[in-house]
């Protein structure tokens, strides 16, 4: 009798503890969500702050919720007073072409390294690994000069940036090669017995099977140029029309000449963030797959 009582008791306390545990979990999660969402909510709210000097001001203020909501800042961006549309277009063009070419390059390199056995394969991989340990923009001056020879700086910065990003993208083959390695080689061998050439296998068999990794590679490549500040600012230096959004809009936050541009920056930031975020969210599962696969293989 007393035994069952005890058991009931402990069960009750167990479920109580479980309930408390659940409650705490939710409280923590809600707190986390608030912290993580706060900057985005703030960005969105402040982008709608009115720019009318009689009502409010576009700079820094000490309150979150605007007194009057208006589309002033968005109107400003599209008014042609700045090159915002041009910057946006530049970034979009860069991102699109980098994503396209980088994916092609990565697929080619990964297939060669995963499926073919040739002299110097290991050496090449090790060499690229070592190259990757040099800080990326050590080479900035030299690249600037190389691009200048071809007229790909300042006015030609957009194709220049695409070229630089694509040219060295072969070294980022790890995740994709890791994926190819998991496709059984027996499939290749069977196709080869049927008389298919390596190229045929690559185009008609491996590529159609690699949809997740292609989407992952393209997605990551597409998102990179949106926050490229270093190279873009150096290569487009002084030529407003070839800036990308990151280079152009950081000025509004950093330089004192742009007092009162803060809300405009917020509006621009929203316009940049929304399409990229939507795209990312749609393809989220592919991203997770790529990232986890890459992390485990190292």
């Amino acid at each position: 009798m007393s035994n069952t009582d005890n058991k009931n008791d402990s069960n009750a306390s167990m479920s109580k503890r479980k309930k408390a545990d659940t409650t705490i979990s939710y409280i923590v999660l809600v707190l986390i969500s608030i912290v993580w969402l706060f900057p985005f909510v703030g960005l969105l709210l402040q982008s709608f702050r009115s720019y009318d000097p009689k009502v409010e001001y576009g700079g820094m203020v000490d309150y979150l919720i605007p007194k009057t909501f208006s589309l002033d800042n968005y109107r400003f961006l599209f008014s042609g007073e700045t090159n915002f549309i041009k910057w946006y277009g530049n970034t979009l063009v860069i991102a699109f072409f980098v994503a396209l070419f980088q994916t092609i390059v990565v697929l080619c390199v990964s297939y060669a390294l995963s499926r073919m056995r040739f002299k110097g394969r290991k050496l090449l991989m090790r060499f690229w690994l070592v190259l990757g340990m040099f800080p990326g923009f050590l080479t900035m001056i030299c690249l600037y000069f190389l691009l200048k020879q071809f007229g790909l700086t300042q006015a030609g910065a957009v194709p220049g940036l695409i070229l630089v990003a694509v040219a060295s993208s072969g070294m980022g083959y790890y995740v994709c090669k890791g994926y190819f390695d998991t496709i059984p080689r027996a499939l290749d061998e069977a196709a080869m017995i049927d008389g298919a050439s390596r190229a045929r296998i690559f185009f008609t068999m491996i590529i159609p099977m690699s949809k997740p990794i292609i989407i992952y590679t393209a997605l990551v490549a597409f998102m990179g140029p949106w926050c490229d500040y270093i190279f873009a600012s150096y290569i487009a230096f002084g030529h407003d029309e070839s800036y990308n959004v990151a280079v152009a809009m950081t000025r509004w936050v950093w330089t004192n000449d742009y007092q009162g541009y803060f809300t405009r920056f917020c509006a621009g930031g929203i316009l940049v963030a929304v399409p990229v975020t939507v795209l990312f969210m749609l393809l989220q599962n592919y991203y997770v797959e790529g990232v986890t696969g890459g992390a485990v293989k190292g």
Binding site: L146, A167, M171, R198, F202
Partner: peptide, 29 residues
């Protein structure tokens, strides 16, 4: 070049891209 030596076809452009835009600038620096 599309079969036994397909690796050379695939790697030619990426390797030269890395050479011109990464290796050469690094040696220079």
């Amino acid at each position: 070049l599309l079969d036994g030596n397909f690796d050379k076809t695939l790697l030619a452009l990426p390797v030269s891209g890395i050479f011109v835009f990464t290796v050469l600038p690094i040696i220079f620096m």
